[in-house]
Computed example of a mutant assay.
Amino acid sequence: MITDYEAGISAYELAEKYGHNRGTIMKHLAGAGIRSRVAVPTDDEILQLRELRAEGLGYKTIARRVGRNHKTIRKHLTV
């Protein structure tokens, strides 16, 4: 799991691969001393998020579409 994460596989992909939820994966990685990598959305991604929100989509729906956490979406749209 650590090798996969360090190779660039996302925590969501690891969760699916290993049959655990993302939180469990992150706890195991943290326990092994691996720091979480959080990718900040680019300006283009934020523009896309705003467009999707303007279409009336909710944060969770947008998150599923773009492969991000709904809290990240809300954070960048309520600034």
Score class of each variant (00 low, 15 high):
residue 42 T to R: 02
residue 51 E to L: 06
residue 57 L to V: 10
residue 22 R to E: 14
residue 14 L to H: 03
residue 27 K to A: 11
residue 51 E to W: 00
residue 64 R to F: 10
residue 18 Y to E: 08
residue 2 I to G: 10
residue 36 S to I: 08
residue 26 M to H: 09
residue 79 V to G: 07
residue 77 L to K: 05
residue 2 I to V: 15
residue 17 K to H: 06
residue 69 N to A: 08
residue 54 A to I: 04
residue 32 A to L: 08
residue 19 G to F: 07
residue 35 R to C: 05
residue 23 G to A: 14
residue 52 L to I: 02
residue 78 T to D: 09
residue 41 P to Y: 03
residue 65 R to C: 01
residue 2 I to W: 12
residue 1 M to D: 09
residue 26 M to Q: 09
residue 2 I to K: 12
residue 46 I to T: 05
residue 62 I to A: 06
residue 27 K to H: 09
residue 41 P to K: 04
residue 19 G to K: 01
residue 53 R to G: 05
residue 60 K to C: 07
residue 52 L to T: 00
residue 29 L to A: 04
residue 19 G to W: 02
residue 54 A to Y: 02
residue 13 E to W: 04
residue 19 G to P: 06
residue 11 A to L: 03
residue 6 E to N: 13
residue 37 R to N: 12
residue 63 A to W: 15
residue 28 H to W: 15
residue 12 Y to G: 01
residue 22 R to L: 12
residue 27 K to D: 12
residue 71 K to G: 03
residue 30 A to D: 14
residue 10 S to P: 06
residue 66 V to I: 13
residue 30 A to K: 15
residue 43 D to L: 02
residue 11 A to T: 13
residue 11 A to F: 00
residue 49 L to H: 01
residue 43 D to K: 11
residue 44 D to Q: 04
residue 24 T to L: 14
residue 60 K to L: 07
residue 53 R to H: 11
residue 58 G to R: 14
residue 46 I to Y: 02
residue 32 A to R: 14
residue 40 V to P: 00
residue 18 Y to W: 10
residue 73 I to H: 00
residue 27 K to R: 12
residue 13 E to I: 02
residue 45 E to V: 03
residue 53 R to V: 04
residue 12 Y to I: 10
residue 52 L to P: 01
residue 21 N to C: 15
residue 47 L to Q: 07
residue 18 Y to D: 04
residue 9 I to V: 11
residue 26 M to A: 05
residue 62 I to Y: 03
residue 39 A to K: 14
residue 76 H to I: 08
residue 53 R to Y: 09
residue 47 L to P: 00
residue 54 A to G: 01
residue 77 L to P: 03
residue 70 H to A: 06
residue 64 R to E: 05
residue 79 V to P: 07
residue 67 G to N: 12
residue 66 V to T: 05
residue 60 K to D: 10
residue 20 H to L: 15
residue 46 I to L: 04
residue 51 E to Y: 01
residue 31 G to K: 15
residue 66 V to K: 03
residue 21 N to L: 11
residue 7 A to Q: 13
residue 35 R to G: 00
residue 57 L to Y: 11
residue 29 L to T: 03
residue 4 D to I: 03
residue 79 V to R: 11
residue 53 R to A: 12
residue 77 L to F: 07
residue 10 S to T: 15
residue 62 I to W: 05
residue 73 I to K: 00
residue 12 Y to L: 07
residue 1 M to N: 04
residue 13 E to F: 01
residue 54 A to K: 10
residue 42 T to P: 02
residue 20 H to G: 00
residue 6 E to W: 04
residue 77 L to M: 08
residue 61 T to I: 15
residue 42 T to Y: 00
residue 57 L to R: 13
residue 3 T to Y: 14
residue 64 R to G: 05
residue 67 G to L: 11
residue 23 G to F: 14
residue 46 I to K: 02
residue 26 M to R: 10
residue 23 G to L: 15
residue 52 L to Q: 04
residue 78 T to G: 00
residue 14 L to Y: 04
residue 19 G to D: 07
residue 75 K to D: 03
